[in-house]
Simulated scan of single mutants.
Amino acid sequence: MECSWPGNNQLMQAYHDKEWCVPNTDDQYLFEMLTLEGAQVRLSWSIVLSRREAYQKAFHNFDISYCSTLTDKDLTNLQEQYNVIKHFSKLQSVRSNAQAVIKIQQEFESLSLFLWRYVDFKPIINHWHSEEEIPAQTPLSNEISKDLKKRGFKFIGPVTMYAFMQAIGMVDDHGTSCPYTSNKERKMKENGFH
């Protein structure tokens, strides 16, 4: 099966081709994906991707330290000035999640090390034959979601967590006949996986 979910949307196609399921260990990128996946709750991914540039500008390219210090007034200003999702609790979660990331970095060295240990630092590579087979959540996404919630993270339920795992390459759900399936080994090496 080829991945049909990007459709004819150019942003979705580019995301699928260059980022989706590509293993990544950069904390700033992980925080960006965590934020965007949280923003997607009850919305479509295409809406979030169309506002990604605004998010990058509003949150200083997802600078974790900067985001952790934002006040409610700052967030209100960002809500008014930028084309971000206007849901205020989601915007507040950028701050609280950044604060939670900093605590994890202090304890585990990095958010990446904390997350990737769940899969023994190797992506889970699935071999789906139809998109209907791809789960919305898994026992592992549920476990990580619970662990993150205990650490103060918001908008990180098991479905959002599974999408996040795909986004950072912890899970590879490209279809068996998707042209990007053959790039897995190269992509892993490019991102520090051997």
Results as ranks from 00 to 15, higher is better:
D27M: 05
F155D: 10
Q105T: 01
Q13I: 15
C67Y: 00
V119G: 01
W116N: 03
N191V: 03
T25W: 00
N97E: 12
G157M: 06
P179V: 05
C3V: 06
Q56D: 07
V119E: 01
K18R: 15
N77P: 00
W20F: 09
E131I: 06
V84Y: 01
E19H: 05
L75T: 06
Y162T: 10
S96I: 14
L115H: 01
H16K: 01
T176Y: 09
N191H: 08
F108G: 04
I124E: 14
M170L: 04
S130W: 02
Q81M: 05
L75C: 11
F108W: 03
H129D: 06
K18I: 15
Q28D: 07
M161V: 09
V48D: 01
I134T: 10
T176S: 14
L148P: 07
T138F: 08
I134V: 13
V101R: 08
N191Y: 00
L36N: 02
F155M: 13
Q81G: 08
M12E: 10
M12Y: 15
Y66G: 12
I156C: 15
V101D: 10
Q40A: 04
Q56N: 09
N8E: 13
H60V: 01
N61L: 06
Q79E: 13
C21E: 04
N9K: 09
Q137I: 09
L111S: 01
E107A: 15
E19Y: 05
K146V: 05
L49T: 07
D173V: 13
E80K: 01
Y180S: 05
P158Q: 14
T160W: 02
S182G: 14
A167R: 08
K103D: 12
Q81H: 09
I156S: 13
E107W: 03
P23I: 12
T25E: 00
L43M: 03
V84I: 11
I104L: 13
E143H: 15
D74L: 03
E190I: 05
R186A: 15
N183Q: 15
K86Y: 02
L11T: 06
T35S: 14
K150V: 05
P23H: 11
E143Y: 15
G152M: 09
I102S: 07
A58C: 05
D173C: 15
K149P: 09
D173W: 11
Q10N: 12
S145V: 07
C178N: 09
K18A: 15
